[in-house]
Computed example of a mutant assay.
Amino acid sequence: MSNKVIILSFVALTFACLAFAYEPKPLQDFCVADPNTSVKVNGLVCKDPMKVQADDFFFSGLHLMGNTSNPVGSRVTTVFATQLPGLNTLGISMVRIDYAPWGQNPPHTHPRATEILTVLEGTLEVGFVTSNPDNRFITKVLKRGDVFVFPVGLVHFQRNLGNGYAVAIAALSSQNPGAITIANAVFGANPPIPGDILAKAFQVDKSVVDQLQSKF
């Protein structure tokens, strides 16, 4: 019995280590990104600590409204390590999202981050879809001050339900969370995914796929 407990404990510890393997904990106080180096690593190379300044940990601009004059009616302003070098290795980032009346941040995923969103202005319909095989659609209407979490990797969206502009701030559990917009990835891949593959996947005629691909 004791051997089984030891084995189960070892397995649990192994999976716990894997769960925290997205971005390792920093091994120093900070690692300010150095954009001038040509060295490629999993992240960004550290700037000489003796050359670090307060501005390396500072970003200004989230008070500015994003331009939402685009087909989906939203604009995401990012604060990642590329915009705020002091975020490098710290495993966090944030965005501001502006929504035109009835605009949306279309279905997408963040492959490397969980997202927690707070509504600053307006009313948003938000939702995400669970993984296979259930594919449950979980949705909620949010108002000013409301908070909602999108689990890592799951397809999610936000839509402005009002006739005025809406604004949200979101934090993400990665310095570079990534974004895969579903429609762009499926119908706007470069080079294109063969139409017959998409036609079979979506159970539609290839002419429908051709029409959708032409829009991207």
Rank of each mutant, 00 (worst) to 15 (best):
Glu121Lys: 15
Ile116Tyr: 09
Arg112Asn: 11
Gly164Phe: 07
Leu13Cys: 15
Asp55Trp: 11
Leu124Arg: 04
Val129Asn: 03
Pro111Val: 10
Leu154Gly: 03
Thr37Phe: 00
Ala166Asn: 05
Ala170Arg: 00
Gly86Asn: 03
Pro107Leu: 07
Asp29Ala: 15
Asn88Gly: 08
Phe80Gly: 01
Ser60Glu: 13
Val76Ala: 12
Ile138Gln: 04
Phe58Thr: 12
Tyr165Leu: 09
Pro101Val: 06
Phe57Cys: 04
Gly91Lys: 06
Phe59Cys: 05
His156Pro: 01
Trp102Leu: 12
Val126Lys: 01
Phe137Glu: 07
Ala54Tyr: 08
Arg136Gln: 11
Val186Ile: 13
Val72Gln: 08
Ser9Gly: 15
Arg144Gly: 09
Gln211His: 12
Asp134Leu: 09
Asn190Asp: 14
Phe187Thr: 08
Ala168His: 04
Gln203Asn: 15
Pro35Phe: 13
Asp196Gly: 05
Thr109Pro: 04
Ala189Leu: 12
Phe137Ile: 12
Ala19Arg: 10
Ser131Cys: 05
Asp146Tyr: 06
Glu115Cys: 07
Val149Gln: 07
Leu62Trp: 08
Ser74Phe: 04
Ile6Cys: 11
Ile116Gln: 06
Val41Ser: 04
Phe10Glu: 13
Ala33Asn: 08
Val147His: 02
Val204Phe: 10
Ala185Pro: 02
Ala12Tyr: 14
Val129Ile: 13
Asp29His: 14
His156Asp: 02
Leu172Glu: 03
Gly66Glu: 02
Pro151Ala: 00
Cys46Trp: 05
Thr77Arg: 05
Thr82Asp: 10
Lys206Pro: 01
Val39Trp: 01
Pro111Ser: 09
Ile6Ala: 14
Leu44Cys: 12
Val209Pro: 01
Glu121Phe: 12
Asp34Phe: 01
Val129Trp: 03
Ile7Met: 12
Pro133Cys: 04
Gly178Asp: 09
Leu8Cys: 12
Ser214Val: 06
Ala170Asp: 02
Asp196Asn: 15
Gly61Tyr: 02
Lys4Met: 15
Phe58Pro: 00
Thr181Gly: 09
Gln211Leu: 13
Val155Met: 09
Ala185Asp: 10
Lys40Gln: 11
Gly86Met: 05
Ser74Val: 03
Gly61Gln: 10
Lys215Phe: 10
Lys140Met: 13
Thr139Ile: 04
Val204Gly: 02
Lys4Ala: 15
Asp48Gln: 12
Thr139Cys: 08
Ser174Tyr: 01
Phe59Ser: 06
Ala185Asn: 14
Thr118Asn: 06
Lys200Phe: 00
Arg96Leu: 11
Pro151Ile: 02
